Amino acid sequence: MAKRLLDFRDRTAIAGVGYTPFSKDSGVSTLTLACRAILAALDDAGLTADDVDGLATHRVGDSAAPSLVGPALGIDDPAWHLDQFGGGSVSHAVVAQAALAVAAGVAETVVCYRAINARSEFRMGRAAGTSPELQYQTPYGYFAPPQQYAMFARAHMVKYGTKPEHFGQVAVTQRANAAKNPRALMRTPITMDDYLSSRWIAEPFRLLDCCLETDGACALVITTAERAAGLRRTPVLISGAAWGGGMSFLSTDDPTVSAAATLAPRLYGQAGVGPGDIDVAQIYDCFTYSVLVQLEDYGFCAKGEAGPYVASGATALDGELPVNTHGGFLSEGYVHGVNHIAEAVSQLRGDAGDRQVPGAEVALSTAQPGYILPATSALILRRG
């Protein structure tokens, strides 16, 4: 499987990143958010909308489609576009597909974006009719992501002795990172006592186990590695990109294994690296548990050992594998996956300020690990 895309390695690059402010009430439409983030990313790369011939996004009825964003920016006839249905599971696949389009010569400069008014408007529920399993879950009041993830987290606790304090360490560590991030919504440091005293959402999850519903947008400029080398910023090469993964826990009868375990060998094989080569990781943290299970399934520690691993300080900024250096979705804000990729870019460019990981050369960024929807996606990026 890994041989299919080996020639794709390092042929494309992320040349620019852009954000809007993250807030609880943006006061503008998702179309406006998308355009602002795209223009910021283009400016970061030293480009303009006239240079763009491709647009890509993912959404679940809660954003602005390329067919709207293009005309709003004066991009009337893009050579390629992608309007991917789906949530966090496909966030990194969108970038991967844009990179494939660039590598194939279908487009030269593609902007990937995600715009969302998840806090001031609403995100959940619009896509309910497309998920057939919900008809069996909803009568029992079991349909929200915290409820679903709580079941997997509890299974991990039962099987491996994972403790609430292990979940709490993820929240505390990421808040410490967010305190160094001027973009983060939540910057006040928290203690383990703060975590343990936060209110219940869906046991074993407390409030501080859950990501922040956020208004905001983030965008990335994808172009060829050769072109990126001549632009304004240090290029970040896309060394590996994989999506799919299946629902491995259904086939193994083990709910403590996510689809990331199936995807990881293909991703590492494509990039020509292994877990030991990763300097910094941005791991999808819709909930604290998703960080733990992915640390295991991407091979950074053995199965069942993620709790003690984070408790050891391994994922702190000065640890062996700094994780979610911007604070993650738990503390920076939740832009459905794309802000993780943007943070990985900042780390590899060396412009992350007080939260910079010294000498970061290779980064992993991951999507929702495939629990709620039967797919996941991930990228391995390298400093150009």
Rank of each mutant, 00 (worst) to 15 (best):
Leu5His: 11
Asp7Met: 04
Ala13Cys: 05
Ala15His: 07
Ala15Gly: 11
Tyr19Met: 13
Pro21Cys: 09
Ser23Met: 11
Gly27Gln: 14
Gly27Trp: 13
Thr30Arg: 06
Cys35Glu: 12
Arg36Glu: 15
Ile38Leu: 04
Leu39Thr: 15
Ala40Ser: 14
Ala41Asn: 09
Ala41Thr: 09
Ala41Pro: 09
Asp44Ile: 13
Leu47Thr: 04
Thr48Leu: 00
Asp50Leu: 02
Asp53Arg: 06
His58Asp: 00
Val60Gly: 11
Asp62Ile: 15
Ser63Ala: 15
Val69Ala: 00
Pro71Arg: 12
Gly74Phe: 04
Ile75Trp: 06
Asp77Val: 14
Pro78Glu: 15
Leu82Ala: 06
Leu82Thr: 01
Phe85His: 12
Ala98Ser: 10
Ala99Glu: 11
Leu100Lys: 14
Ala101Pro: 14
Ala103Asp: 14
Ala103Pro: 09
Glu108Thr: 10
Val110Thr: 07
Val110Arg: 09
Ala115Pro: 04
Asn117Lys: 13
Ala118Leu: 06
Arg119Ala: 14
Ser120Cys: 08
Phe122Gly: 10
Arg126Ala: 12
Gly129Val: 14
Thr130Asp: 15
Pro132Glu: 15
Pro132Ile: 15
Tyr140Trp: 15
Gly141Pro: 00
Ala144Gly: 04
Tyr149Val: 01
Ala150Asn: 06
Arg154Val: 01
Lys163Gln: 12
Glu165Asn: 06
His166Ser: 05
His166Ile: 02
Val172His: 08
Gln174Pro: 01
Gln174Trp: 03
Pro182Arg: 00
Arg183His: 10
Arg183Gln: 10
Ala184Tyr: 14
Arg187His: 07
Ser197Met: 05
Phe205Glu: 04
Leu207Asp: 06
Asp209Trp: 08
Asp209Met: 10
Glu213Asn: 11
Thr214Val: 10
Cys218Arg: 01
Leu220Trp: 03
Ile222Lys: 08
Ala225Gly: 05
Glu226Ser: 13
Gly230Lys: 05
Gly230Glu: 00
Leu231Gln: 08
Thr234Asp: 06
Leu237Met: 11
Ile238Ser: 03
Ile238Met: 05
Trp243Cys: 04
Met247Arg: 06
Leu250Trp: 12
Asp253Tyr: 12
Asp254Glu: 13
Pro255Ala: 04
Leu263Ile: 07
Ala264Thr: 02
Tyr268Asn: 08
Ala271Trp: 09
Asp279His: 08
Ala281Ser: 11
Ile283Tyr: 07
Cys286Val: 13
Asp297Ala: 03
Lys303Asn: 00
Lys303Gly: 00
Ala311Pro: 03
Leu317Tyr: 07
Val323Trp: 15
Thr325Gln: 02
Gly327Ser: 04
Gly337Gln: 00
Ile341Phe: 01
Ala342Leu: 07
Ala344Thr: 01
Ala352Glu: 01
Gly353Asn: 06
Pro358Val: 00
Ala360Leu: 02
Pro374Ala: 10
Leu381Ser: 12
Arg382Asp: 01
Gly384Pro: 03
